[in-house]
Write a protein that binds this DNA or RNA. Structure first.
Lengths: 196, 196
DNA sequence: AGCCTAAAGCTAATCGCGTTAGCTTGAGTT
DNA sequence: AACTCAAGCTAACGCGATTAGCTTTAGGCT
C-alpha cells in the first residue's frame, strides 16, 4: 500500500491551521484539499465529512487550550495563577481564532466523545486555580461560571473585533483580570477567610 | 401594482422569528420562503441576498436589545440599574438566541450602516448605567469592556448549553451580577495590579 | 369602465460545494 | 512476479443560493 503521507493528525492539523487563517466559517473541503495538494474528493479518504473535520479541529483546540492553561497555572497560585491562566487563554484565542470558533461550534457527539475529557481538563485547571482563593464550596460553581463568562466573552469580543479603540485592549484585559482577582479575594475575605 | 402583503419589515421579522426557532446557522432561503407561503426565488423580490437578510436580522436584534436594556435601566441607578439591565440582556438572548447570533455574526457594512447607531445605543445604555458608580474616567472604558465581556460571555455560554448543571444557572447569574456590582462599588482595579 | 405599468409570483436553469461511485495506481507483502 | 488495498483521481449527484425571464394582477390614470 502507498505510504501514508497524510495521517489523521496531520490532516486535522492542516485544517486547524487553515481555519485560523481564513476563519472557521470559511472552511471548505476544497480549500483544505488544495492545501494538502490533493483533489477534494480524495479528502474523504481521511475524513468522513466536513462536520467530522470541524469536530476534530474542536477536539484539538480544546486539548491545546487545556495544555497551555494548565502549563500557565502550574507552579503559581492565587492572583498569579489567575493572571497567567487568563493570559494563556487570551493568547491562545488570539493566535488560534479559527480553532477556538470550532470548539465553540461543536457539541459532544456522544458519551465517549474525546471532546468531553478535553473540556473537563480545561475546567479542572480553572477549578484548581480557583481553589487557591479559598472560596466557599457553594460559591465555587458560580465563581467558575463567572470566570468562564468573562474570559470567553472577552476573547470572543476581541476576536470579533468588538473593541473599537483597540489601542488599550491589553490594558483593559489587565484591568479585567485585576477586577476578577480582587472580587475573588473580597469574596473569600467576606467569609472571614482573610489572612490578617 | 399588487398590494404589498410582504413588507421589508415583515420579511425581516419572519426571518428573525425563524432564526430563533431553528438556529442562526440553519437559516435557509427555502425555509423562510415556505414560512411566508412563497417559493424560494420569489424571496429575492424582498431581499437581495441571504447575507443581507442576516444583516437585517442583526440590525433588528441590536435595536430590540438596545430598547429593552434602555427600558430596564430607565428610572434606576447603581446596583438596581445594573441588575435590571443585565437581566434584560440575558432574557433577550434566551428568548431570541437566533437574533443574538445574527448580531454577533455581522460586521458593519459601511459608515452609514444602521447597525452602528444600534450598537452605539446599547453601549450608551451601559455607559449611562456605569456612570452611576462614579468610576474614575480613565477606568470607564475598562469597566465597560469587562461588563460587556461577562454579559456576552454568560449569554453565549448559556445559549450554547455550556453550563452543564443547568439547575442553578439563575443563581449563578445573580451571583455574577452581585460580583460585578461589588467590584464596581469597590473601585476594584483602581488599586493594585496583578498583570503577569 | 378600461387600459397600462410595475411589483410580486412562478418555473426553469445556473453555480458552487459537499458528497458518493467507481476506476487506477503503486508500495509492500507473499 | 503476483496480489492487495490504501490513497488518488474523474465523473456525477444533490441541495441550497442565486439569476433569467415569463405571467399575473392590482392601482393609478384617462
Amino acid at each position: 500500500m502507498p505510504k501514508a503521507r497524510l495521517t489523521p493528525a496531520s490532516v486535522t492539523e492542516a485544517a486547524a491551521a487553515l481555519v485560523d487563517e481564513v476563519g472557521f466559517d470559511n472552511l471548505s473541503m476544497g480549500l483544505l484539499a488544495e492545501r494538502l495538494g490533493i483533489k477534494t474528493p480524495s479528502l474523504y479518504k481521511h475524513v468522513t465529512s466536513q462536520a467530522e473535520l470541524a469536530h476534530r479541529i474542536a477536539v484539538l483546540a480544546m486539548t491545546e487550550a487545556g495544555d497551555t492553561i494548565r502549563d500557565a497555572i502550574q507552579g503559581r497560585s492565587g492572583s498569579a495563577a489567575l493572571a497567567a491562566g487568563a493570559q494563556a487563554m487570551r493568547t491562545y484565542v488570539r493566535e488560534h481564532p479559527g480553532r477556538y470558533a470550532a470548539a465553540n461550534a461543536t457539541r459532544p457527539t456522544g458519551p465517549d466523545d474525546p471532546f468531553i475529557p478535553a473540556s473537563e481538563r480545561v475546567l479542572a485547571s480553572w477549578a484548581a486555580m480557583l481553589s487557591g482563593y479559598g472560596l466557599d464550596p457553594g460559591q465555587e460553581i458560580h465563581a467558575m461560571r463567572t470566570l468562564r463568562s468573562v474570559l470567553h466573552g472577552f476573547a470572543t469580543l476581541e476576536a470579533a473585533g468588538g473593541f473599537q479603540i483597540d489601542a488599550s485592549v491589553d490594558e483593559s484585559f489587565a484591568w479585567l483580570v485585576t477586577f476578577i482577582d480582587q472580587g475573588l479575594r473580597a469574596g473569600a475575605a467576606s467569609r472571614g477567610d482573610v489572612t490578617a
